[in-house]
Write a protein that binds this DNA or RNA. Structure first.
Length: 217
DNA sequence: ACATTAAAGGATC
DNA sequence: GATCCTTTAATGT
């Protein structure tokens, strides 16, 4: 029960155990129920680490609609940018299920970075990786048609799962927000592509017939 | 090509 | 049983 977030996070788990222990003493543990807000522009700045569960990160676009950015899994963290002065006026985080969070407040984290440059270096590395993902998602949203976005999303998921058969991690509504469209359009595209025999779907179970046909789009 | 609006049935709390 | 999700159709940009 007194689990140790620090050991499971890539940001810290390369450290010696006694160093991890001191960091662990700075973290506060908190449990969130499904649907509860973990991160919002109104909250005070802090570093949050997902220990258990899933958190959806989204921002609101000009029309007040959700734009899903990514889903945080155990070991992911967010809020580091704000610790360096970036103002968060659009980022929200919400628990998708019962979720355990470890938090470190701004001051403690800054102090930690001063004392342990290795952590700062590690943070830069992880941030660089995150940046690549963000840029990929940004281009993905502007360039392609919905059909292409959906196809490439399904291809990515299939490869990640290592199988042509897999379960969508989102509700349809959330998947729509993620690929930058509406649930209605997503529903129609799904039906159309299913009729074209690119895949079968039962609820959130997807069975791809052929990777190549999808890649042609 | 895609969004919006409305409506209806299903799923979930 | 109310509320949210999903799908379909008609209409709008």
């Amino acid at each position: 029960m007194e689990h140790n977030c620090v050991t499971l996070v890539p940001l810290f788990n390369h450290l010696e155990t006694n160093e991890q222990e001191t960091i662990n003493q700075l973290t506060h543990h908190e449990k969130f129920q499904k649907g509860e807000t973990i991160l919002s522009p109104l909250e005070e700045d802090k570093l949050v680490i997902v220990a258990r569960g899933q958190v959806k990160l989204y921002q609101l676009n000009a029309n007040g609609k959700e734009q899903l950015l990514r889903v945080m899994e155990p070991g992911d963290f967010e809020g580091d940018k704000e610790l360096f002065g970036a103002v968060n006026n659009s980022l929200y985080g919400e628990a998708m299920q019962e979720t355990t969070i470890c938090m470190i407040n701004q001051k403690d984290f800054q102090q930690m970075l001063l004392e342990k440059p290795e952590i700062a270096l590690r943070l830069l590395q992880l941030n660089a990786q995150k940046m690549v993902q963000v840029e990929k998602q940004a281009q993905f949203l502007t360039s392609d048609s919905i059909e292409e976005r959906l196809a490439s999303y399904l291809i990515d998921l299939s490869k990640a799962e290592g199988s042509l058969k897999f379960t969508l991690p989102f509700k349809m509504k959330e998947l729509a927000a993620f690929i930058g469209t509406t649930p209605e359009t997503l529903s129609r595209k799904m039906r159309q592509m299913e009729d074209d025999e690119l895949f079968q779907r039962r609820g959130r179970m997807i069975q791809l017939n052929n990777l190549e046909d999808l890649e042609d789009l």
